[in-house]
């Protein structure tokens, strides 16, 4: 179970409206950050979230018997995001790339912190998507490599090595700014 995930209720029968709202309130913020990290696009992120919650609403039994709601939803959101990306035409992808960097972190009134967060967004955007996904789950979902492996459908060793490679790149790129701030 991921540390940030609230304790899910016992596997429930068809999700009524209030259950949908509960799921949204409990997980939507994490799903937003996760999908934003994958798609790097706010508009796509909204489409993905809408599709995820629409799927849950249409098939209330989807979460029945699920041990870890958060992990399940993260996996569902990842698959939905990849489906969306595949459906997109090459032209749409090109326009999305032209739209520029999407900030992944909260704005900060402190100029040093703001600069670091911008640099961090850029550095994450520069990582291969599979490494970025592992970094996000490890650092901001505080998932173990086993949990990451389950969410991404990869071996735990692969998750660990991707994380190490990605962290080395982030360290190399952000070290000067980090040293200034700390």
């Amino acid at each position: 179970m991921l540390p940030n995930a609230p304790v899910p209720p016992e596997p429930s029968s068809p999700a009524p409206s209030d259950d949908l709202e509960r799921l949204y309130d409990a997980h939507a913020a994490a799903l937003f950050a996760w999908v934003l990290s994958i798609t790097q696009n706010e508009s796509d992120c909204r489409d993905v979230l809408q599709e995820v919650f629409a799927r849950i609403a249409i098939r209330p039994g989807l979460l029945a018997g699920v041990r870890d709601e958060r992990a399940f939803l993260l996996r569902l959101a990842k698959n939905t995001a990849f489906d969306l990306r595949r459906r997109r035409s090459a032209r749409e992808k090109y326009h999305a790339a032209l739209a520029g960097e999407t900030p992944l972190f909260q704005e900060s009134p402190n100029p040093d912190e703001a600069a670091f967060r911008r640099a961090l967004s850029e550095a994450l955007a520069g990582l291969p998507p599979e490494q970025r996904a592992v970094v996000h789950l490890k650092l901001w979902e505080e998932a173990t490599f086993e949990e990451i492996a389950e969410i991404l459908g990869i071996p735990a060793n692969t998750a660990a090595s991707r994380y190490r490679y990605a962290l080395d790149k982030l360290r190399a790129r952000l070290r000067p700014l980090y040293d200034e701030i700390v």
Binding site: S17, L20, E21, Y24, A28, A29, F32, A33, L36, S37, R46, L49, Q50, F53, A54, I56, A57, P103, L104, F105, Q106, F116, R117, L120, W140
Partner: peptide, 18 residues
């Protein structure tokens, strides 16, 4: 470093669509 917050105005739209 805190990730960007979810825009609060999305909640009503996403749940209504669902």
């Amino acid at each position: 470093q805190p990730p960007r917050p979810l825009p609060p105005e999305w909640r009503a739209g996403i749940l209504a669509a669902a």
